[in-house]
Design a protein around this nucleic acid. Structure first.
Length: 588
RNA sequence: GGCCCGGUAGUUCAGUCGGUUCAGAAUGCCAGCCUGUCACGCUGGAGGUCGAGGGUUCGAGCCCCUUCCGGGUCGCCA
């Protein structure tokens, strides 16, 4: 038998056609003299009908079919009687009257139902991932992922980009995430690293005159996992020559618009909103703000400076700030107990506490109002636009703690009060990031983006005098509070690159040792260039409405970075280790 | 590394104060019956290392300790 059609593609237009279908038996309904089987393949399900009188052999064979048997059938497509139409499935108007049936393989009873919206422990799903992936919603996710890749490829191709592969076995980079290392057999004691991103190679491709590059690139970072983070993930990576920020942004807005329209039919408006890093932090306490709801931060430092409440006054005196969120009209939805739990919530972010004022018609309920003068209280109420029914929530600390705590609190409150409109797709760019930050632990400057990011032209002078004030030509693209991707214009000047590396604490020798090949390349004519990279998995996660990146990866890893189906990683033969010159040392 | 949540039939879960009724439900599975079902129905049946180990107790699914596994999160992720 040779397949003629897919199950889900049959319709009334196929009525009276003789068809051959292949797939998995999803459900049997044995009524005695007539037997129904739902046949499922990638495209959907269709009902098979086997009548007893149609032929004893086919019927008895069909009676032995169990869930997930792989079968092939030949039959005639028939229109169903109106009273037997199933409106719940797309093929519900027709059915296939089976005349031949082949069982290609039997199946043990699967450990969970092969259907949408199962309520099964993820551990079990991952152990039997091939069964999980057989479920329609997982198939949809994987198909969407394929479409995104295809659309991105076509888009970049038609915009003059070349798809170029870069190596997976590369030199270890000293900064950034922890590398996955691969021992070299030939060079005993030496290691390759798996790429955290194709960063240096794509820049070298620009030096090589490829002009526009893209790649759907696998990347590796040996860091702890999250719902939206895997140690092995995929980037849509691109780089362009002779461009500045606006060029990169507009090419990418076009790509995103096309992806959203062609996958989920959402028309996104371009150009996207742009926020500077400073504005994003001031208003949302985050460099990846979710703008689907309000609850913006309000800076009360001016009012609180020198006030009678020591916690506030001290925070400001030591260079920090006091900021607040006004949860409008939430007074009757946030009980005293809820407020206590919010106090605990902000402590996760190292805030020492959370002060609050509940505004009612005739009084202010709060543990802190007694520390303020009437004037100060009035100023606070005015600045926060407080009205009866509002709840004001304050954090006072160093700026970064205030932002972390209130930024997270903002989202937490929005979730609890159900303020988020899930039908919206709020894209925005965050720009004007600082180039550097000071790492107290390492006692040195570190690049916020990476060491190849170009500073603002007008800030270059300040590299020597006030490095922390230098802005970077970097940009992140944010969707609904998730960082989808980011990039930058790169340094293309050898001197400036060398200066950056020295500012980051690399000695001349170290810089030469680690990045010598890049600096060397820059001697030979380097075009101005820049680009960006998307987290493909996150993008698909948002497109499919998935809660976890694992739901859009065929074979993801779990929190301890292992893979439950194959049980990777695993020990290897002594012989393999011998060849590599590796000995496992027991640690205590 | 820290914090929070979870682990009981194949699956999803309930299990009160530690005690008879505590080895339970639903679903799935198996068998029989059934000619229009589509969550088919009816009758019957099988199915358990209560994650593991230790402790307290006359007695532990339940209390205590240790440990393993999974999820979330902080740190980490240029």
């Amino acid at each position: 038998m040779k397949r003629t059609n897919y199950c889900g593609e049959l319709s009334v237009s196929n009525v009276e056609n003789k068809v051959v279908l292949m797939g998995w038996a999803a459900k049997n309904r044995d009524l005695g003299g007539v037997l129904f089987i739902d046949l499922r393949d990638r495209t959907g399900v269709v009902q098979l009908v086997i009548n007893e009188q149609a032929g004893g052999e086919v019927f008895s064979l069909a009676e032995s079919v169990r869930s997930e048997y792989v079968i092939g059938v030949e039959g005639i497509v028939k229109k169903r009687d109106p009273e037997t139409v199933n409106k719940n499935i797309p093929t519900g108007e027709i059915e296939v009257i089976v005349s031949r049936l082949v069982i290609y393989s039997k199946s043990e009873t699967p450990p969970f139902y092969i259907e949408e919206d199962i309520d099964t422990n993820e551990q079990v799903r991952l152990k039997y991932r091939y069964l999980d992936l057989r479920r329609p919603d997982m198939q949809k996710n994987i198909i969407t992922r394929h479409k995104v890749c295809k659309i991105a490829r076509d888009y970049f191709d038609s915009n003059g980009f070349l798809e170029i592969e870069t190596p997976m076995l590369i030199k270890s980079t000293p900064e950034g995430a922890r590398d996955y290392l691969v021992p070299s057999r030939v060079h005993r004691g030496s290691f390759y690293a798996l790429p955290q991103s194709p960063q240096l190679y794509k820049q070298l491709l620009m030096v090589a005159g490829m002009d526009r590059y893209f790649q759907i690139a696998r990347c590796f970072r040996d860091e702890d996992l999250r719902a939206d983070r895997q140690p092995e993930f995929t980037q849509i990576d691109l780089e362009m020559s002779f461009v500045d920020i606006d060029d990169v942004i507009s090419v990418n807005e076009g790509m995103i618009a096309e992806v959203f329209e062609k996958t989920i039919g959402v028309k996104v408006k371009t150009p996207f909103l742009r926020l500077t890093y400073k504005e994003a932090m001031d208003r949302f306490g985050s460099d990846k703000p979710d703008t689907r709801f309000g609850l913006e931060l309000i800076n009360l430092s001016e009012i609180a400076a020198g006030c009678g409440f020591k916690v506030f006054a001290d925070a400001i005196a030591s260079g920090g700030s006091v900021r607040a969120i006004n949860a409008k009209g939430a007074a009757d939805r946030l009980s005293r107990r809820d407020l206590d739990s919010l106090v605990d919530f902000v402590k996760i972010y190292r805030a020492k506490g959370l002060a609050w004022i509940v505004v009612t018609q005739d009084e202010l309920k709060s543990p802190i109002t007694k520390f303020f003068t009437q004037e100060e209280i009035q100023a606070i109420l005015k600045k926060t636009d407080a009205a009866a029914g509002d709840v004001l929530l304050f954090v006072a600390d160093k700026d970064n703690i205030v932002f972390d705590a209130l930024g997270a609190l903002r989202i937490e409150i929005a979730k609890r009060l159900d303020l988020i409109d899930k039908s919206r797709y709020n894209f925005l760019w965050v720009t004007d990031f600082p180039l550097l930050e000071y790492d107290d632990e390492q006692k040195k400057y570190v690049a916020i983006h990476h060491p190849f990011t170009c500073p603002f032209d007008e800030d270059i002078d300040k590299l020597d005098t006030n490095p922390l004030s230098v802005r970077a030509k970097a940009y992140d693209i944010i969707l609904n509070g998730t960082e989808l991707g980011g990039g930058s214009i790169r340094i293309h000047d050898r001197e400036l690159q060398a200066k950056m590396l020295s500012l980051l604490g690399f000695s001349q020798e170290e810089a030469q040792e680690r990045f010598g090949f890049l600096l060397e390349a820059f001697k030979y004519g380097t075009p101005p260039h820049g680009g960006m990279a998307y987290g493909l998995d996150r993008l698909v996660m948002l497109l499919t409405g998935s809660e976890s990146i694992r739901d859009v990866m065929a074979f993801p890893k779990v929190q301890n970075a292992s893979e439950p189906m194959s049980n990777a990683p695993d020990t290897v033969d002594k012989k393999q280790l011998m060849e590599l010159g590796i000995k496992i040392r027991e640690t205590q």
